[in-house]
Structures are given as structure tokens and as C-alpha cells.
Design a protein around this nucleic acid. Structure first.
Length: 410
RNA sequence: GGACGGGUUCCCGAGUGGCCAAAGGGGGCAGACUGUAAAUCUGCUGGCAUACGCCUUCGGAGGUUCAAAUCCUUCCCCGUCCA
């Protein structure tokens, strides 16, 4: 039996409707229907390609959007073909980038992929999964092979992309290897004979290169399906590891809940649409609640709960909700906090905070003392020379709103 | 290959001999407020030192000077135009 998937919308067999839900651009719907129909008729599963950027060993909510879509295809009987971009990773995807990305080393890629694989199976069904490295074929291409591929696409079509154009206009470096990136990524589709390619909107033009190359190599062109990009916690840029505005699917329930509560209010519906299994009607209802003056905080809490439930459990979500209320609304204490042993004769407050690693330096600690950000058992400490002693069993040191330290006897 | 312009702190970007740990903005952190780690307002934002002050930082390496991000030499890198 298939493993129960929390990534499927409730009460629905994967249908064309479901597969199309939440999809931004679809190139083309007619081709998709034809491919699905053919697959049903011949009993041959479709090969759905998803590229993995091996730049970091983490999967965040933004990347989970296409992964969850991929899971729906798996549940409809198709094959997920995950392509680890170990070769293209060495180029660095220029999409949406205003500067050249650092090239990854083999070792970095290997480490990242190992963890990636584990994480991907949190969402995907391993039984219907094919994991491929694009170095398998890309490394084998000879110079003349590369020329041959490059000859099938024009410079004008490559540099029509916004990101390249801006860089050229602004005089920001654009390197030769970056121009090749779309070609290699497109060639992946040829190599794995992809029927469908999934990904974020920013990948659209890359995917079209895949279509073009497949045609050139005598294959039926892949259907291109892009998902809207999830905006990150800052409310401005797309969610991405390198912008540090992300929620990892491996974040602890509390962490995940807290981060989600920090998204700007007007992102609530987007997050519901892209990260949860809410249906369109449910989304409409939420939108009405929001516009009718219902406190967005409560709706956001619902959202956070939903998402924590998907990646952890309903129980964890409940606990995270409670803790959030306790710590931030009632200014109480979290369940768990790091501990620090205080010597019998006491320790200077600045030493203590720096040693415990609550703040990066002593200068910073002095600054925070001046700002009134440091509390001992709820009492604000401003004196740089204050000595912390342990009169009772344990005391609580708090820095800012969210950093806690339990002081114990040392 | 030639001419010109440029490389500044986490990012962008001002600064052409001392008043420069370096304007301004962004980001980050904190405080107030609150409906939340939202929004808004305010403050802080290299390190060490209770403090005097000391140390590290303006592409790299040398040099001039009492004193250099600023001047000189050389090297590396980027851009524009020309070839």
C-alpha cells in the first residue's frame, strides 16, 4: 500500500483538475491532456522531471511547492524523475540573479545531495522516484557535443531573459558559462526523456529551452508546468536559502510556527494556497474573513498550525501554538531552553552572555545592556558590571524577545 | 591590444592626506507600542577594554609621510568604448 500522503488535497483522487491546481504557467494544457490520455491507454507512466539545485543541504517551504505537486503526479501513478544538478550546480543557476553565483565543488555537492535525498522523501514516495545526477551525461559530453547543442539555440533567445538583460544593461559581469546554463539544463530533459517538467516560475525560460532541444533531438517536447514562487519571510524576495528568508521543512515545530507568524499579513492567502491543502472554496472563505476585519493574527496562527501539521503532526502543531502564545503573548517561558552553569562566586553579566553564546561579542552585549534588552528573572539589567549569582535553584536570563538561558549551579 | 572609468564595512553606496570605524540607504538586532517574531515609531549596528585608549577593516603587495580609504609604484580583478 502506498504511504499516506499529507501532501494530497483531501477526498480527491488525483485528477486533471487536481494536477492543474496551483499551477502558474502550463505549456500546453492540450499537450498535458494528450500525454495523460496516452499514458492511461498504454499503461505507461509519465516521466515528470524536477531539477534539484544542490547549492544547499536543505529543503524549504518554497521548494516544497513543486515537490508536493510532484507527489500528486506520483499518486496518480507517474514517475518522479529528480535531477540533481551536480553538473549545472558547478555553473550556478543564473535565473533571477544579478551576479555570478559561486561555483560549487564536487564535495559540497555530494554532501548536499545526501541530505537532500533524505529530505525529499519526507514528501515524495520513494517507490515511484528516480534519482539522477546530471553529471551522468553532462560530464560525458565532448567538446564537439557541446558545440552541437549550442548550435541549436540562439544567443538572442538566451539573452532575452530579464536577468541577463539587466546585467548587460547595468554593466554587471555575465560570464560565458552562465549563458550555457539553460542549454545544459534543457539537455537534461533530452537525457531523461522527460514528459513533463515542473518547477518555479523563474525556471520558465529554462524549461522552454528543454522543449526546443527535445524537438531538435527528435523527442516529443515536454509539457512545462511552473508553480508560483513562494515569497519568503521578509515579504519581498522569493523564499531562498541564500536570502535567509526561509522555513526549512526540518525546522522544529516551534521554529516553524514562529517563522510563519512573522510573515507579513498580506502573504497569508498565498501561503495557504501554496503550502497547505486548502481548497479554493476554503481559500475564498479565508479571504472574506481577512477583509471583514477578522484579526489576521488568528488566521495566521491557523496557517502556521496547518503547515506544522503537514511536516510534523497535529500534536506538535498544538504544542507549538501553546508555546507561541505563552512566550510572545503572555511573555512566558518556552518549554526548552539551553542551560548554563554559573560558578558559586558568580559571574559578570557580560562574560556570561558572551560565553553562553547568546550574543556574538562582548561589545554587542554591552550595547544590548544599554538598550535594555537583557533581563534576569524578568528584571531588566543595565549595569555592565552586574554580577550574576545563583541564589535559588535556577534563574532565567533573557536576551531580547526570543533568546532564553536557564542558569544552573556550576 | 588601446583609451577611459571602477574595486570601500553583511549588501548597495558616499568619501581624494589628519575632524574616518568611514555619510546615506538596505538588511540585521533591540526598545516602545501592539494583534504576532505583522505594521509603525525610536535607537543601535567591527573587535578588545569599566574607562584613557588599543587593535583589525576601504582589491593584493610594497613605498612616501609625523599621519593614507585618500598620494606614488606594481600586481590582480571588473566595466564601457575602440580595435
Amino acid at each position: 500500500m502506498k504511504k499516506e500522503s499529507p501532501h494530497l488535497a483531501r477526498c480527491e483522487a488525483p485528477s486533471l483538475e487536481l494536477l492543474k491546481r496551483g499551477v502558474g504557467l502550463l505549456e500546453t494544457e492540450a499537450e498535458l491532456e494528450a500525454k495523460l490520455e496516452k499514458s492511461r491507454r498504454t499503461g505507461t507512466p509519465l516521466r515528470v522531471k524536477l531539477g534539484i539545485d544542490a547549492s544547499g543541504p536543505d529543503i524549504h517551504l518554497g521548494f516544497a511547492v513543486p515537490l508536493r505537486k510532484l507527489r500528486q503526479f506520483q499518486d496518480a501513478g507517474h514517475i518522479a524523475v529528480l535531477i540533481v544538478g551536480d553538473f549545472t550546480g558547478k555553473i550556478g543557476d543564473p535565473s533571477g540573479r544579478s551576479r555570478t553565483r559561486p561555483q560549487l565543488t564536487d564535495k559540497q555537492v555530494q554532501e548536499n545531495v545526501k541530505r537532500y535525498r533524505e529530505l525529499a522523501f519526507e514528501i515524495l514516495d520513494p517507490a515511484r522516484c528516480e534519482f539522477r545526477y546530471n553529471s551522468e551525461w553532462s560530464d560525458k559530453l565532448s567538446g564537439s557535443d557541446i558545440i552541437n547543442i549550442a548550435a541549436k539555440y540562439t544567443v538572442a533567445r538566451i539573452i532575452e531573459r530579464e536577468d541577463f538583460k539587466t546585467r548587460l544593461d547595468k554593466g554587471i559581469p555575465l560570464h560565458m558559462h552562465e549563458l550555457l546554463y539553460p542549454l545544459f539544463q534543457g539537455y537534461d530533459s533530452v537525457a531523461v526523456r522527460a514528459d513533463i517538467e515542473l518547477g518555479g516560475t523563474d525556471q520558465y525560460l529554462n524549461f522552454l529551452v528543454g522543449r526546443a532541444l527535445q524537438r531538435e533531438f527528435g523527442q516529443e517536447p515536454q509539457v512545462v508546468m511552473t508553480m508560483p514562487l513562494l515569497i519568503g519571510l521578509d515579504g519581498k524576495l522569493k523564499m531562498s536559502k541564500s536570502y535567509g528568508n526561509y522555513v526549512s521543512i526540518k525546522d522544529s515545530p516551534e521554529e516553524m510556527f514562529g517563522k510563519l507568524m512573522s510573515i507579513p499579513d498580506d502573504l497569508i492567502t498565498d501561503y495557504f494556497r501554496l503550502c497547505t491543502n486548502r481548497t479554493e472554496e476554503e481559500l475564498k472563505k479565508t479571504e472574506e474573513q481577512l477583509s471583514s476585519g477578522e484579526n489576521p493574527r488568528n488566521i495566521k496562527a491557523e496557517l502556521a498550525r496547518d503547515i506544522v501539521t503537514i511536516y510534523h503532526s497535529a500534536d506538535d502543531a498544538g504544542r507549538a501554538t501553546e508555546e507561541f502564545d505563552r512566550v510572545f503573548r503572555q511573555k512566558g517561558l518556552p518549554d526548552e531552553m539551553p542551560e548554563f552553569a554559573v560558578p558559586a562566586d558568580g559571574v559578570n553579566i557580560v562574560e556570561l552572555v558572551a560565553k553562553a553564546g547568546l550574543l556574538p561579542s562582548k561589545s554587542e552585549t554591552r550595547r544590548k545592556l544599554r538598550e535594555g534588552a537583557i533581563y534576569l528573572d524578568g528584571e531588566r539589567i543595565k549595569d555592565v558590571e552586574f554580577t550574576v549569582r545563583l541564589e535559588s535553584e535556577s534563574r532565567i536570563l533573557k536576551v531580547g524577545k526570543r533568546r532564553f538561558l536557564r542558569l544552573t549551579k556550576g
